[in-house]
Simulated assay, not measured.
Amino acid sequence: MLKIKIRRFDKDEINTFLPLVQELMEHSVEENLLKARFSEMFEHRYECHGIYVEEKLAGVFGLWFATRHYCGKTCEADHVFIKPEYRSKGLGKQVFQWIYEYARERGCETSELNAYVHNFAGHKFYLNENYVIKGYHFLKKL
């Protein structure tokens, strides 16, 4: 198992993590628009973290913090992405153990996430992490 180091990115480090987020996305979004969106996200209880293996960026994930009526204070993992060459090496398990500990330190009671419908490997991983499918995520373009 590879040993990871997790580092929180500052808002001005967008060019470091953006290429990884773009690899994960189902459809392309113009880069300047994506940068503007991330800039705004950083103003709203959002954090972005890098996953490093031997000082090399191996992945990225975001975290949203909120209080919700149905589950209390929660930490929602977002755009979790590990580069293909680092997959199936135990990084995901280590990342989520780090997220759970970090969220507990911040007073969170629950952890949530969304996953693309076609991400079957992700579904299996999240179910093995004891996430429970509670609903569907709907999206409508306006």
Results as ranks from 00 to 15, higher is better:
residue 138 F to K: 05
residue 37 R to L: 11
residue 49 H to G: 05
residue 12 D to F: 02
residue 7 R to C: 08
residue 7 R to E: 13
residue 41 M to I: 01
residue 55 E to R: 14
residue 106 R to C: 04
residue 63 L to N: 14
residue 38 F to Q: 09
residue 121 A to V: 10
residue 136 Y to A: 03
residue 136 Y to R: 12
residue 55 E to F: 02
residue 32 N to G: 03
residue 20 L to H: 12
residue 35 K to N: 04
residue 91 L to V: 09
residue 129 E to L: 10
residue 112 E to S: 12
residue 19 P to R: 12
residue 100 Y to N: 06
residue 87 R to N: 07
residue 95 V to K: 02
residue 41 M to E: 10
residue 29 V to S: 01
residue 102 Y to R: 12
residue 104 R to G: 00
residue 68 R to L: 15
residue 99 I to L: 04
residue 103 A to P: 09
residue 118 H to F: 14
residue 110 T to W: 00
residue 6 I to P: 01
residue 109 E to G: 13
residue 16 T to H: 11
residue 4 I to H: 04
residue 73 K to T: 12
residue 59 G to K: 03
residue 126 Y to V: 11
residue 93 K to V: 00
residue 108 C to D: 01
residue 22 Q to E: 15
residue 58 A to C: 13
residue 128 N to V: 02
residue 122 G to T: 12
residue 100 Y to I: 11
residue 68 R to N: 15
residue 127 L to C: 05
residue 98 W to S: 02
residue 30 E to M: 09
residue 93 K to M: 01
residue 59 G to T: 06
residue 136 Y to T: 04
residue 135 G to R: 10
residue 107 G to Y: 09
residue 116 Y to G: 07
residue 13 E to Q: 15
residue 52 Y to T: 13
residue 42 F to Y: 11
residue 121 A to H: 08
residue 6 I to L: 02
residue 28 S to D: 08
residue 5 K to F: 07
residue 110 T to I: 00
residue 27 H to C: 02
residue 131 Y to H: 11
residue 127 L to D: 06
residue 72 G to V: 12
residue 68 R to S: 15
residue 44 H to V: 04
residue 42 F to K: 02
residue 108 C to R: 01
residue 7 R to H: 11
residue 129 E to K: 05
residue 111 S to G: 08
residue 19 P to F: 10
residue 55 E to D: 15
residue 58 A to W: 04
residue 10 D to S: 10
residue 93 K to H: 07
residue 93 K to Q: 05
residue 8 R to D: 06
residue 124 K to N: 11
residue 48 C to I: 15
residue 80 V to W: 10
residue 80 V to R: 02
residue 46 Y to V: 09
